[in-house]
């Protein structure tokens, strides 16, 4: 949720419903004012257009939290990875730092890892600043 009074980084996080959402509930992240956390059925649904739309709506960075490689029930996280890899390449050709998109592998119950992933990404994006 955007907070117009701060200049702090705006990141959008996409989380998988199956592996990540349970952990999300246990963490305190969802109440964090500066974060947008969007739960999707499977990160296989998080296409590059969606990622770019997040940027269009003002995100400074986009984090995708997916099931660890090989563990996705829908066998889609390799697809997600391939897309993210290509997207990063396209972004850097367009002079947008590829680090603004990150994919993290998080299993059910890895609450601390999730929290660290979000916070770590947040810090990295804060350093980069907004997209000019």
């Amino acid at each position: 949720m955007d907070n117009p009074t701060t200049n702090s980084a705006k990141i959008t996080t996409f989380c998988c419903n199956w592996s990540v959402k349970p952990g999300l509930r246990l963490s305190n992240l969802s109440t964090d004012e500066e974060d947008k956390i969007i739960v999707t059925m499977c990160t296989g649904r998080v296409g590059p257009e969606l990622v770019m739309q997040a940027f269009e709506y003002g995100a400074w960075g986009v984090l995708i939290c997916a099931c660890p490689l090989g563990e996705c029930k829908h066998d889609a996280n390799y697809k997600t990875l391939r897309r993210v890899l290509l997207l990063k390449r396209m972004l850097s050709q367009l002079n947008i730092e590829p680090e603004r998109v990150r994919i993290e592998w998080i299993d059910t119950g890895e609450v601390a890892k999730l929290q660290n992933a979000v916070n770590g990404f947040y810090d990295a994006i804060e350093k980069l600043g907004p997209i000019k």
């Binding site: 296409g47 391939r82 997207l87 396209m90």
Partner: peptide, 10 residues
């Protein structure tokens, strides 16, 4: 472009 890339990537 992104839609095409997504398709190719799958």
């Amino acid at each position: 472009g992104l839609r095409t890339m997504a398709g190719i990537a799958s």
